[in-house]
Design a protein around this nucleic acid. Structure first.
Length: 332
DNA sequence: CTTCTCACA
DNA sequence: TGTGAGGA
């Protein structure tokens, strides 16, 4: 099949196909005498894949990598690229959602005042800009991909970082007291240790982590569990999906501003009566303790204050040393 | 009908 | 991330 026929069949221009070839995404055979490209069914199938991935907004560079994994039959890596793409799209969706909300607010102001109060609008714009930057500034400062292999060992033996780990997970499960059939989200799920305990009780758990290696292990350990790439600031789920959100030994990775944003994100994916459970090392003073190395142990009193201001009733407890648990149920 | 390159957004 | 022109 020559290029024009292929292009017509796929509803793209011949030019685009040559372009994909130039970028190294396909390599159709060329006829010896005149150098015309000949497209096999395999080539067509590959082009269809490219078009589909392109349709999802994936950049050509990433499509190239994804196809390489697919060629190597590396199912897990291919899944990683698709999920990466999904999490990118989710961030964009959140941004757009926010822009719509800002616009709605402006429309409301205009109706009410017959004009736009500039100060308010400016503050609003600044606010959304900051939120966007918070999200964008997310980085894997901790290289959990590298740590994934040793993670399960470490949580049990690291008497410093993960002191009280087992007891903390057990307490979280007890406080959440899930009803079988409920849906829960574990943020920063790692290899799914907390999620596994909840699944045992009949909860449908979803896990989010920023590390693909962690998620690989998590899926291996908990075959039925749904896992997605993502982070606190852009949870890869639509609104109102969960009965509860839980996070253990992960919240302290967020800076001050990011913590506030993360709480808002949790609320977004929760049903109206959805509860929140946060287990982590915390400090009792009024300010986060910034120990460097990307660790910002949250201030327990301030965390409680935030949640109460947002309309939650809270309950908290000390598990061991710095390790605390905070549980919150909305009353409005 | 196809190829390739150059410029352009 | 493509597209259009123009020569071979």
């Amino acid at each position: 099949m020559k290029i024009k026929e292929a292009a017509e069949r796929l509803n793209i221009t011949a030019r685009a196909i040559r372009f994909y070839e130039e970028k190294g995404l396909i390599a159709p055979a060329k006829q010896d005498d005149n150098q015309y490209r000949r497209f096999s069914e395999k080539d067509i199938w590959r082009l269809q894949t490219i078009i589909a991935l392109r349709e999802s907004g994936m950049p050509l560079e990433d499509i190239k990598k994804a196809l390489e994994q697919s060629d190597a039959r590396d199912h897990e890596e291919l899944q990683y690229y698709l999920e990466l793409q999904r999490s990118v799209m989710f961030s964009k969706w959140l941004e757009i959602k926010q822009i719509i909300e800002t616009t709605d607010y402006m429309i409301g102001m205009l109706k009410e005042h017959q004009s736009l109060p500039l100060d308010d609008i400016y503050a609003l714009a600044e606010g959304s800009k900051r939120l966007r930057e918070q999200r964008r500034d997310w980085k894997d400062l901790w290289n959990y991909d590298r740590l994934a292999g040793l993670h399960d060992q470490r949580v049990l033996t690291d008497a410093e970082e993960y002191r009280g780990y087992t007891e903390a997970l057990a307490t979280a499960v007890r406080w959440l007291a899930p009803i079988p059939g409920e849906t829960g989200l574990d943020i920063g799920t790692g290899t799914g240790n907390l999620a596994a305990r909840l699944i045992e009780l009949g909860v449908k758990m979803a896990g989010v982590d920023q590390s693909k290696e962690m998620l690989k292990r998590c899926r291996r350990k908990n075959p039925g569990m749904e896992t997605k790439l993502g982070n606190f600031l852009a949870l890869p789920y639509l609104d109102g999906r969960f009965d509860f959100v839980v996070t253990s030994f992960a919240f302290h990775h967020l800076t001050d501003n990011q913590k506030a944003l993360a709480l808002a994100e949790m609320r977004r994916v929760l049903q109206p009566r959805g509860r929140i459970c946060i287990v982590d090392r915390m400090v009792i003073s009024d300010h986060d303790s910034d120990s460097g190395q990307g660790k910002h142990y949250p201030s327990l009193p301030r965390l409680l204050q935030w949640l109460e201001d947002a309309g939650y009733v809270t309950k908290h407890g000390q598990i061991e040393g710095m390790v605390h648990i905070v549980y919150a149920v909305p009353i409005r």
